[in-house]
């Protein structure tokens, strides 16, 4: 089972060659405008704090039964997942991500095994992060948190129910024999992790993920064979999202400040990012996910008002990050700023 270390979920495989380790943290970021424009990758503004669900008896019983972790997020705040498998000597990992138990790559219902038709997972290190739902080749719609039960989430739009919320993630290391065969000296194991947002006892406190603005992010085909992945070592974690305005009531701690708007960030001249994909073929994206209405679109329908921060911006300098199995910086997209972002 994973551990919580410095606000990251850390998965270790001590019996695996190389003692493979994989971590996932959740990055605060700005919400990109929701328009026809495809934006580059926004920065990471630091990790969301993560806490053990079982430490908070005030959480709904159903949430506590799911176990896992809880993090605070503001309404209409964006979030991205940062993956880190360590050094080049470590084996690759297959990562499956869902929101509200809707697979973020295929738009299908969550299932534990890795599947190929269609491929419902990503491979690290080729995929160092995930920012949203895959709607077309090389295009995603940003993860944006909204109260579960208000109809904004992808889960609610595709299933008609507000049952799960949250994120589900699975991480699957490679089989030892497969890795040794490919690398002549290394082996892999498998670990599967699942994150889900908070279930919704009260829609005002539990959050789910809707579809935000469009962003350029390629999700590539798995360069390995499906049989290379060891799916026996699956582990799961349920990640509950709690409305940041109620975080102090729950934990006694102050929630992080709301992230800056895309407009404020663009004015600051700080960098945006792009990721050079490898030569693997991009996955097609999901027609079901492409059919989902965006948070801003629904907000206008429900309230008659434009979601704040929806005006297009001109991104500042774009930093191109090459695929790299051994990034020297744990989170190369993270902006170090003196601001209280």
């Amino acid at each position: 089972m994973p551990t919580l270390e410095k606000n990251a979920l850390v998965f270790r495989f001590p019996k695996s060659a190389g003692k493979a380790k994989f971590s996932v943290d959740f990055q605060r970021t700005l919400r990109i405008p929701d328009s026809d424009k495809d934006y580059p990758l926004p920065p990471g503004l630091g990790r969301f704090p993560l806490r053990h669900v079982e430490d908070y008896p005030n959480l709904p019983a159903q949430t506590r039964q799911r176990g896992g972790i809880v993090l605070p997020v503001w309404q209409s705040e964006a979030i991205w997942l940062n993956f880190n498998g360590g050094s080049r000597s470590n084996p690759p990992f297959a990562i499956k991500v869902a929101a509200g138990k809707i697979n973020a790559v295929t738009g299908e219902q969550w299932s534990t095994p890795l599947n190929r038709n269609p491929q419902d997972y990503m491979v690290w290190p080729e995929q160092p992060w995930l920012d949203g739902f895959a709607i077309a080749p090389g295009v995603i719609r940003q993860f944006v948190a909204m109260p579960l039960g208000e109809g904004y989430s992808v889960e609610e739009q595709l299933t008609g129910e507000a049952e799960w919320g949250g994120l589900q993630i699975s991480v699957t290391p490679m089989r030892r024999e497969a890795w040794e065969r490919r690398q002549e000296s290394l082996w892999t194991g498998l670990e599967e992790v699942s994150f889900c947002f908070l279930e919704t006892p009260m829609a005002s406190d539990e959050m789910s993920l809707g579809a935000g603005g469009r962003m350029q992010q390629v999700i590539e085909e798995d360069p390995y064979d499906l049989e290379d992945w060891d799916m026996r070592a699956t582990q799961r974690v349920f990640v509950t999202l709690w409305h940041a305005s109620r975080w102090k009531d729950l934990t006694g701690e102050a929630a992080p400040n709301a992230a800056p708007s895309a407009q404020d960030y663009a004015r600051s001249g700080l960098p945006w990012y792009a990721h050079y994909a490898t030569d693997q073929k991009p996955l097609p994206g999901s027609g079901a996910l492409d059919s989902v209405r965006s948070v801003a679109d629904l907000h206008k329908d429900k309230t008659g008002a434009t979601l704040p921060g929806s005006q297009d911006v001109t991104p500042g300098p774009v930093v191109h990050l090459a695929p790299d199995r051994t990034p020297e910086q744990e989170t190369p997209r993270e902006v170090k700023s003196d601001d209280s972002w």
Binding site: L4, R12, I69
Partner: peptide, 17 residues
């Protein structure tokens, strides 16, 4: 050994979902 120490670190509990 490191593995024994790591076992003392609190793990994230999985539940029913």
């Amino acid at each position: 050994p490191q593995e024994a120490v790591l076992r003392l670190v609190r793990e994230v509990r999985d539940g029913d979902w």
